[in-house]
């Protein structure tokens, strides 16, 4: 839960049930693919919430539950779909209440993300207790989101193999990584794509995924390009916004979240610090990366 300018619900006061996706007769757990889903399908996200009324009121300093609602939001970054369903928490006091949201045909694609929260759904008077008072105040925002994979193998690194020559790419190059940082909130899988040159003698080895020097060099090169591209984005016109965005919380699976995970794992730094270091002390940072990524050790990580 992010810091808010008002009191928020404690972690102990609310429990959300991991949502499931109903597609036809199948009930799918989050994180799992939905093989029977297609564009024509109507599906339903089924979730649940339960609050401990006493603890919720104590932690928020609110007088009663009547102004608080539990929300379940469904987002699809690929189509721009967003729907939110709200339920008064009085219905979820000390027992679980269901939250359901129907997703119509031709509205979502790739994957959907579900997030829970508690909001104040009425306007109150400001009080010295710092209780939330503005309608819409995020009384509780879950840091965990849940994802359903609707199409394709979202777990693999997006890779495509073709001959570079006719496509206008250098025909002797083994690979080309396309990575554009339009927004840190974009799904990472949509922002990155690795092209393997089938005209190159190493292409089969690279596509096989077998551990070895080829994979080691490719892996390191990809990591380096991701970090350098993101760091250099700071020189763009919207540099102030960019610095702010780097420090924000990032949705799971987004460009920001993946970069953040990479910098923590391989540079042992939070994303904003790592981006600054790549800009100001690039040679040292990239040397550190060669070590932590196991470059030339033949160990595909």
């Amino acid at each position: 839960m992010r810091a808010m300018p008002f009191r928020t619900a404690s972690d102990y006061s609310v429990k959300f049930t991991p949502p499931r996706l109903r597609v036809g007769d199948a009930l799918i757990e989050s994180g799992k693919p939905a093989p029977t889903w297609d564009y024509l399908t109507t599906s339903t996200v089924v979730g649940g919430v339960q609050v401990d009324a006493t603890e919720l009121l104590r932690s928020t300093a609110l007088d009663d539950l009547s102004g608080i609602s539990a929300t379940m939001q469904v987002d699809c970054a690929s189509t721009g779909f967003r729907e939110t369903v709200a339920l008064p928490v009085v219905q979820a006091a000390d027992h679980e209440a269901a939250l359901q949201l129907v997703i119509g045909p031709h509205t979502v694609a790739d994957q959907i993300e579900i997030s829970y929260g508690l909001v104040l759904d009425r306007e109150l008077e400001p009080r010295p207790s710092m209780a939330p008072y503005r309608r819409g105040s995020r009384v509780f925002a879950s840091t965990q989101s849940h994802r359903f994979i609707l199409e394709g193998d979202a777990a693999g690194f997006p890779t495509e193999a073709f001959a570079f020559g006719p496509a206008g790419l250098p025909k002797g190059a083994p690979w080309h990584l396309r990575f554009h940082v339009d927004s840190l909130e974009d799904p990472f899988m949509g922002a990155v794509r690795l092209f393997i040159n089938t005209e190159h003698q190493a292409s089969e080895q690279l596509l096989s995924g077998a551990p070895g020097l080829h994979r080691s060099v490719l892996f390191h090169s990809v990591l380096e390009q991701l970090l350098v591209t993101a760091a250099d984005h700071n020189q763009a016109a919207d540099a102030d916004d960019w610095s702010e965005l780097l420090s924000a919380n990032h949705t799971e699976g987004s460009v920001g979240a993946v970069l953040s995970s990479l910098t923590t794992t391989y540079l042992e730094m939070a994303l904003p610090a790592a981006m600054a270091a790549v800009r100001t002390d690039r040679a040292r940072v990239l040397t550190k990366l060669r070590e932590s990524a196991g470059l030339l050790l033949g160990d595909a990580r």
């Binding site: 939110t84 309608r135 819409g136």
Partner: peptide
């Protein structure tokens, strides 16, 4: 849009009505 984005930190704007 920057000013509006600031509001989305403490507020969930998705529950507000069109008038709000």
């Amino acid at each position: 849009m920057k000013q509006i984005t600031y509001q989305t930190g403490p507020l969930d704007l998705n529950i507000l009505t069109a008038d709000e």
